[in-house]
């Protein structure tokens, strides 16, 4: 695989649409390992930041840089996972073919086994339940052997049981060495998963702390208000 693509550096990112600064002066560094969670109210720019990091959109100001050529070495799971109109297995094989993986079938089998999806392998992916879809989306991303995984609101559509299962998966992947940058609007989830918190408000990075100190002693009035459940 070569040298690590990390750290990821976001440097002075701004995104401007219709004269509005949706993101402004956004800078942070993601080193190797751990779960970094972006929290903040709706419209804070959480998803946009993931998309910028993943390269789906380009910033109007600033830049995203990796330590090494990072093409196809980071993967992303979307809030509403895209399920191709194919079987579960074919969904994984398709992604592997797209990145010209050397042995798509074998790797797909590994992914199916790793995520307990063998029983569903030949089912049309779009008939899966919400939790199963999310699991497939993560399995599909994992199959690509990324170093960094971006997760956008991975459990926003799920019931508590499925949420628990996905959270356990995320923790396990992190322990296996995958670096994770995720967003969530669920503060409980952030508490349960995050090693580090990036708190966004109105397109700006307000606090960048380790998780425990963010929740115990937020530094800014906005963060205190947000944690208290107030509208900010």
């Amino acid at each position: 695989m070569g040298a690590s693509i990390l750290p990821l550096r976001a440097d002075g990112l701004a995104l401007i649409r219709d004269g509005q600064r949706l993101l402004d002066n956004m800078s942070f560094v993601i080193p190797q390992g751990g779960i970094t969670t972006i929290v903040g109210p709706n419209g804070a720019g959480k998803s946009l930041t993931l998309r910028l990091c993943h390269g789906l959109i380009l910033p109007d100001e600033g830049n995203v840089s990796w330590a090494h050529d990072a093409r196809l070495r980071h993967a992303m799971v979307f809030q509403q996972p895209v399920m191709l109109r194919r079987s579960v297995r074919e969904n994984i094989v398709h992604a592997l073919n797209a990145v010209a993986h050397r042995s798509p079938q074998e790797r797909a089998n590994e992914a199916l086994a790793r995520f307990n999806l063998n029983a569903l392998a030949d089912r049309p992916a779009r008939l899966l339940s919400g939790g199963e879809r999310q699991k497939l989306a993560i399995a599909r991303a994992w199959a690509l052997e990324p170093e960094v995984l971006f997760l956008d609101e991975p459990t926003s559509q799920l019931d508590p049981a499925a949420t628990r299962e996905i959270e356990a998966l995320i923790l396990a992947l992190s322990q296996e060495g995958l670096t994770i940058l995720m967003t969530t609007h669920d503060l409980g989830q952030a508490r349960r998963l995050a090693d580090r918190i990036l708190f966004f408000n109105r397109g700006r990075l307000i606090e960048d702390r380790d998780s425990a100190s963010f929740f115990d002693a937020p530094e800014t009035p906005q963060a205190r208000a947000f944690l208290a459940g107030e509208l900010i």
Partner: peptide, 8 residues
């Protein structure tokens, strides 16, 4: 989103 992510 998905296909762009895969470079397609």
């Amino acid at each position: 989103d998905h296909l762009t992510s895969l470079g397609l």
